[in-house]
Simulated assay, not measured.
Amino acid sequence: MSGTHSDVPSVLAHELPRPVPLDELAACPVGEVFRRVGDKWSMLLMILLGHRPYRFNELHRAVEGISQRMLTRTLRGLENDGLVRREVFPTVPPGVEYSLTPLGRSLLEPLSALADWAVRHGSALGRAPEPR
C-alpha cells in the first residue's frame, strides 16, 4: 500500500501511461517476477524448500511428473535469480543440497497471499458473468 492511498491496492496507486509502452512493460519488475516464478514448477519448488533444505533426489521424488532435466533447469534458474542456494558437500559422491536464500524466503509471504487468493477464487476464474 502506498502511504498516501492506504485504501488502494499498491498496483492501483499509480496511473499507467496509455498506451503502456512495450519497453516499460518489458522492464516492469512485477512482470519479471511472475515470469521467473510463474512457470509450472518454480512456485512448487519454492514452497517445498520453504519447509526445509532438500537434496536433489529428494526433490525429484517429492514432485511427481518432473523430469531430472526440468528439475535441474528450474533449480538453476531459481539459483541464478538468487532465490535458491546450492550447497555442495565434500563427500564421495559429492552431496548437493538446495535451500532458500533470504531473498527466496522473503518471497514466501507474497506467494502465500497469491496462493490464498487462488484457493478462495480459483473456481471463479474462466467463468463468464451472466449477461444482464
Rank of each mutant, 00 (worst) to 15 (best):
D39H: 05
P53M: 01
L59R: 01
N80S: 11
R61H: 13
L75M: 10
A62I: 10
D7M: 09
R127N: 08
L22P: 01
R120C: 08
V84G: 05
F56K: 06
E15A: 15
S99N: 11
R85Q: 13
L16Q: 12
L16G: 06
N57R: 05
R18Q: 13
N80A: 14
V96S: 02
G50V: 01
P17G: 12
E130M: 10
N80G: 11
P9C: 13
G95C: 01
A113Q: 11
A27D: 14
A26K: 15
G38C: 11
E109T: 15
G50M: 06
E79T: 15
P9K: 13
A62S: 15
D7L: 10
A13R: 08
M70T: 05
G104H: 02
M46I: 09
G82R: 10
G95I: 02
Q68W: 02
G31D: 13
L49Q: 07
H5S: 14
L108V: 05
E130P: 00
E87W: 06
T91I: 05
R52A: 02
V63I: 15
L107I: 01
V119D: 13
A115P: 03
V8N: 10
P110R: 12
V88R: 02
E64H: 14
L49G: 09
V8E: 13
R36L: 11
E97V: 11
R69F: 00
L49E: 06
F56C: 08
M1T: 13
L83G: 09
P29C: 09
P53V: 02
L108Q: 10
L71T: 01
T74Q: 06
L114S: 08
L45W: 00
V84Y: 03
P19W: 14
R76N: 14
V88M: 01
F34A: 15
V20A: 14
T91F: 02
L16N: 07
E24C: 09
G104I: 09
H14D: 04
A124V: 05
V8L: 14
P110E: 12
R69M: 01
A26L: 15
G50Y: 04
L44T: 03
G82D: 12
V88P: 00
P93E: 01
L83W: 07
S67P: 03
R132F: 01
P90L: 05
P110L: 08
R85S: 15
W41Q: 02
M1P: 11
P94C: 07
H51N: 03
G77Q: 12
L75V: 10
S6A: 08
R61G: 08
